[in-house]
Design a protein around this nucleic acid. Structure first.
Lengths: 188, 188
DNA sequence: TATCCCATGTAACGAGTTACATGATTCT
DNA sequence: AGAATCATGTAACTCGTTACATGGGATA
């Protein structure tokens, strides 16, 4: 059992290694060249994180071309690492996470193919949707309690938040439909 | 001149103190009770950050009820602090920031009343909009280059990002109109 | 031969988190 | 009187950032 919960970056790495074994540099390039940049790209964070995962036995490292002076270190996920990853992927969206770590929600979703069945993914998205709906209500209540015309910019900023979550609600609905279509699942 | 650039939390505190002097506890409650939670709420981050700002001369602290054993420490922004804050508020949105620190963009906007004129705020939002449009194009290109039906979840996650930025574009357009209306500014 | 990019890291530093500590004030 | 909450902080820890270091292979 992990002493300390893994960081978002560590879970990201675990997920990427579950999809396929890679070297630290592979991961680095993947981060740098895709929208994953959001989750940080510097070698100074990636290499130590991989080493931490290896130290915990969540990933294994094997030396490519071990005879050469500068071998590549290829990381692959272990059974224990996969278990840890799956436990994380199965975590439903909480209000706390929606507010403080919204990126992690989408990250989990995008890695869902590692172990979740389509119905499980749909359930996850429905949980996400519910949480977003509840939070929009919260924000709306808060906005309506705000004083009238004063603080225009603050009100608009709040409005931005509301619209952002509403957009996420719409997206989750569309994603559920797309997944149902792709797997010919009838609505429950 | 600041040796190290301030963190987002420090700028947030600076902005809140520019609106009115407050104690650390006031700030703490404000964070805990509003959507500002996103920018962290623990006393363990707030008090040290305030102390750092005071150490740099960006805020001044005065003891409330100095005769008592446990006086409240009220922080207020200094002229130098206000200069620093204003320089930050005037920073236009960059692509880098849009991708890595999107919250900071809205934060600056919501504090704009500290010093920016309505036309300046509108210019800021137009810059935000331009950056978002460019990034949506980037993401769209990336999506279209992705392999066809494979990786459904990853494609949907990317779609989420695109829709999120599109929602921000719509918001910024609406916000510009709202500000024009409020100040009876004709379109440039 | 010199210079770039591949590929792997390390070191110093700073900031945020969690958890704890402390004493005053107000409520029950 | 005791409990909760106000109000202020500190300490330990960990992670991420920036910057630097290293050295082989490819390209000019």
């Amino acid at each position: 059992m992990p002493e300390t919960p893994l960081t978002t970056l560590e879970f990201t790495l675990l997920g990427l290694l579950a999809l396929q074994p890679r070297s630290g540099y592979d991961v680095h390039r993947l981060f740098a060249g895709t929208p994953l940049v959001r989750f940080s790209a510097s070698p100074g964070s990636i290499y130590p994180a991989l080493k931490r995962l290896a130290g915990r036995g969540l990933v294994a490292d094997a030396l490519d071309r071990p005879t050469e002076a500068r071998p590549r270190r290829i990381y692959s996920i272990t059974a224990w690492g996969r278990e840890t990853l799956e436990a994380w992927l199965r975590q439903p969206v909480s209000r706390e996470e929606l507010v403080r770590q919204p990126e992690a929600i989408l990250l989990r979703f995008s890695l869902a193919e590692v172990c979740l069945t389509p119905p499980e993914v749909i359930a996850y998205l429905e949980g996400f949707r519910r949480a977003a709906v509840a939070y929009v209500e919260e924000l709306t209540r808060y906005r309506d309690e705000m004083a009238g015309p004063r603080r225009l910019y603050q009100r608009l900023a709040l409005e931005h938040g509301i619209q952002a979550y509403e957009s996420q609600i719409r997206w989750s609905e569309g994603a559920i439909v797309a997944i149902r279509d792709a797997h010919s699942i009838r609505e429950a």
